[in-house]
Design a protein around this nucleic acid. Structure first.
Lengths: 338, 338
DNA sequence: AATTAGCATTTGAATTTATCGAGTGCTAAT
DNA sequence: ATTAGCACTCGATAAATTCAAATGCTAATT
């Protein structure tokens, strides 16, 4: 069976009507739009149903887009438009504020998007690998506790506390840290561990008696920097629950337990494809069969990450895609303007 | 009317039965426990109802504790017992791990409590005022951007980035920071702003040409430290939604919007009374009429804060009170054992 | 050949009715 | 002061009824 123009128009109409009304779409309601009788539409609907693009809940109900139908829609039919004046206006206030750091700008954006769309939005960011080490400081709190503070040229600061064995000399470590500091400045943050092991370790070993301890501290600190330096912001976390898809107690219980940080983290970080916007519908979302997740990566100002927007499958695709693209463009451009 | 012993026993029984079963309590079901007939119980119930301690949903239903009834219960009737072996066991594993920092230990505890009780638990912590300034560092990222890093003797580290006017000399600021550093070391963190204004400002003014800028940077940095250095952890955030109290779509929408971080923050920080555990029932919770909030302050290891547990009004009061008291005792004791 | 009008049929959703049982309040007996 | 007994209330549940929206199919029309 072939997707002729009328079938495409019909599917598009069904998706968009359903998204707006959340009610199964009947043949009668589409007569005017498609300029033909309800009977003709019914015939075409049978065809679309056979192709798997639409479904009936029961024999006498209207049609609802299937996951396949949504996918066909986002891949072939939808036409992301320019943002409406209102949507744009709200976002612009953020980008006009040059003082905001990237991560703040991103999370502010998401708040607005959640607000505009009533979906849940999440950003999972981390310092990008093009951060260069600017400075490390070791601060001795007392005879046994020290803190290592790591700062990159992009202005990202992390710290980690260590408790030493009683027989380690704190002042020795502080001194060593100054040496290491000089040797490491300017190193890309993801190369630090390597450099530490193959270039610095031999040198420390000569100068310091318990070099193993010192080495481990710095090794740990940097590993931690890379691992822990992720930040997540969630906006409109529970908006999903308000969708009519989640009606029964079971539904709510099931989805509610997924609205915790860990699930979000797992869901967002799991993105394939390149820099383009990705759309995962229903089962593909790996989150819940009733949702669509739209994700896009961004990279700006020493930070990179992924933004995800979770909504019901009957998402306002065109609008969300426009919003997300616009936002990432702005974010990535923000750096240049400085 | 007077609360004689039998009325007390009856109210206690009603509260505890209702908490267990979530069903209005009828006179018949209490005969055995109170060793009298259902008719007698009904008479007493009328008395309790007149006093405002219990309510009927409708004329032929059993009785349910009123907010006043719950309050009477927590103030006069309940007997927090020692923790059960199981509850204690789970918590002990945390405190046996001495390496955990306080804030980590607290949030781990809360995870367990949420898990055990199915309520939502929140901690809002901040560095306590007995933190002394250990060190400040100013790191120049480039000609215009600097980062101020503040570290206290308790090992709390915060940083803030500044963008300077083009006509400010970065190296000058770094130099000044070293002077200021020496003068401020050992100052309680909440006194820093004061000392900065009255002792340090005059000195800087003499040495540096645009002292106003430098002063503002440090002033801002410390203000930020005090303000922003709060951390919040939420555990079992959406557990509330699973309670049968939240059944209709409206209920869910209403409460769901309160499960966001900002509402939690506001709710937790709003605690009166002293160091003792506080119980806010229903309307008193300032959160939702259907919930009870139990809060307690803690203070340990340079950090202080408030822990709150939110559950339905028919909360397992005795258990939660025991858990929370036990936990705070352990947390506060943890410091000494080190 | 494609489209449409017409119509019986299906089905969920909403409304009404009937039934049941848990619990109460009151009175009179203990 | 307590309790047995009983009429009464009311929600919860299930069954029965009605209603409207939409379908699929056939035959007529373009």
């Amino acid at each position: 069976m072939i997707m002729d123009e009328r079938k495409k128009a019909l599917l598009k109409e069904i998706v968009e009507t359903y998204v707006k009304t959340i009610k199964p779409v009947g043949s009668n309601s589409l007569c005017k739009k498609l300029k033909c009788s309800s009977a003709t539409i019914r015939n075409e609907m049978v065809a679309l149903e056979n192709m798997g693009y639409i479904e009936k809940n029961h024999i006498s109900s209207g049609r609802v887009p299937s996951e396949l139908g949504y996918r066909y829609y986002v891949e072939n039919l939808m036409e992301p438009k320019d943002l409406t004046g209102e949507d744009m206006l709200k976002l612009q206030t953020i980008f006009s504020n040059n003082d905001l750091q990237v991560s703040d700008a991103v999370s502010k954006c998401l708040e607005i998007i959640s607000d505009l769309t009533n979906y849940t939005s999440i950003v999972l960011g981390k310092s990008s690998n093009d951060n260069l080490l600017k400075q490390i400081n070791v601060i001795a709190l007392d005879e046994r506790r020290i803190i290592a503070v790591v700062c990159t040229d992009k202005g990202i600061v992390e710290n980690k506390q260590f408790v030493l064995d009683t027989n380690t000399d704190v002042s020795e470590i502080v001194k060593t840290s100054e040496i290491i500091n000089k040797m490491l400045v300017g190193t890309p943050i993801n190369k630090v561990a390597e450099k530490l092991e193959f270039e610095i370790k031999p040198i420390i070993a000569k100068r310091i008696k318990d070099y193993e301890t010192v080495y481990n501290i710095f090794y740990d600190a940097f590993n931690d920097f890379i691992k822990h330096n992720t930040n997540m912001h969630v906006s409109g976390r529970v908006n999903l629950l308000k969708e009519p898809e989640y009606e029964t107690t079971e539904d709510i219980k099931r989805i509610a337990s997924k609205l915790e940080d860990d699930s979000f983290k797992e869901m967002v970080s799991n993105i394939d494809g390149g820099e383009n916007l990705q759309i995962y519908i229903g089962k593909d979302s790996n989150f819940d069969d009733n949702v669509t997740v739209i994700k896009k990566k961004y990279k700006s100002g020493g930070e990179e990450g992924t933004i995800a927007i979770i909504g019901p499958k009957r998402m306002e695709y065109e609008r969300v895609v426009s919003l997300l693209n616009y936002m990432v463009d702005k974010i990535e451009g923000k750096d240049e303007r400085k």
